[in-house]
């Protein structure tokens, strides 16, 4: 059995896990062929935003930990009526919930979230701890908005998927909640690839997203800064 990884990134679920893993591979942060032991960074998928908030006071204490990062969505939980609620929807309330926890952990850096993500340190000799709130540490949204921002403005198929999604709602009473419009658009576009209904990870791996666009660069810079990679 292996010791806990020194550097760990914690994400909300398997979709986030695979999308981010392949983004790191594409960007050269990871090289292919590494396993859990040789990878410079371990990624752990939990189950939703609340599980990450619950995780924050404890996981950094694992033996040998030097840096830990959390990637959360700025959206909230979807309620039966289609609105978002529960643990904090929106970037600012999400950050407030996090900074309250960080204050209790003794994070020494000013608890301010900037557009390039948060990187701080727990006490003077504790591990580094970082946060990225999807999509861009400012807007309301989730990893879907981040992924949508990695499609080229000239991508005709994606533009059509957007249009079709709107039409589906206005003309055919499609029931997807407005808050999940980007998710619906993305699903629509991925449904039309050579392998229909690609996952985010498969699409990233297949080069469907442009990892050289600024939103991806900004995220990768945060990863490199936090984990010293």
């Amino acid at each position: 059995m292996a010791a806990p990884p020194a550097k760990q990134l914690v994400v909300e679920g398997p979709n986030d896990y695979h999308a981010i893993l392949h983004l790191l591979l594409k960007s050269g942060v990871f090289v292919t062929g590494l396993d859990d032991q040789t990878s410079p960074l371990s990624i752990k998928a939990l189950q939703g935003k609340q599980s990450l908030l619950d995780d924050m006071p404890e996981r950094w204490k694992e033996s040998g930990r030097t840096a830990i990062g959390y990637v959360l969505d700025a959206d909230g939980y979807l309620q039966n009526d289609g609105s978002l609620s529960g643990d904090p929807p929106g970037c600012t309330p999400t950050w407030q919930a996090i900074s309250y926890r960080f204050q209790n952990l003794g994070v020494v850096d000013p608890l301010e979230l900037k557009s390039d993500g948060f990187v701080g340190q727990i006490s003077s000799n504790g591990p580094r701890i970082g946060v990225w709130i999807m999509p861009n540490n400012q807007a309301v949204g989730a990893i879907e908005e981040f992924l949508c921002s990695l499609t080229s403005p000239a991508n005709a198929l994606f533009i059509h998927a957007r249009h079709a999604t709107s039409q589906a709602r206005t003309k055919h009473a499609a029931e997807f909640p407005e808050a999940h419009r980007s998710k619906a658009e993305l699903a629509c576009w991925l449904a039309w690839q050579e392998e229909p209904a690609m996952t985010y990870g498969q699409a990233m791996s297949a080069g469907k997203f442009d990892f050289q666009l600024e939103p991806a660069n900004s995220f990768i810079r945060w990863i490199r800064r936090l984990f010293d990679l």
Binding site: A3, P4, S51, D55, E58, E62, S63
Partner: peptide, 10 residues
């Protein structure tokens, strides 16, 4: 949380 998230305390 420790058990459900598989946090290694040892």
């Amino acid at each position: 949380v420790i058990v459900n998230h598989e946090i290694e305390v040892r």
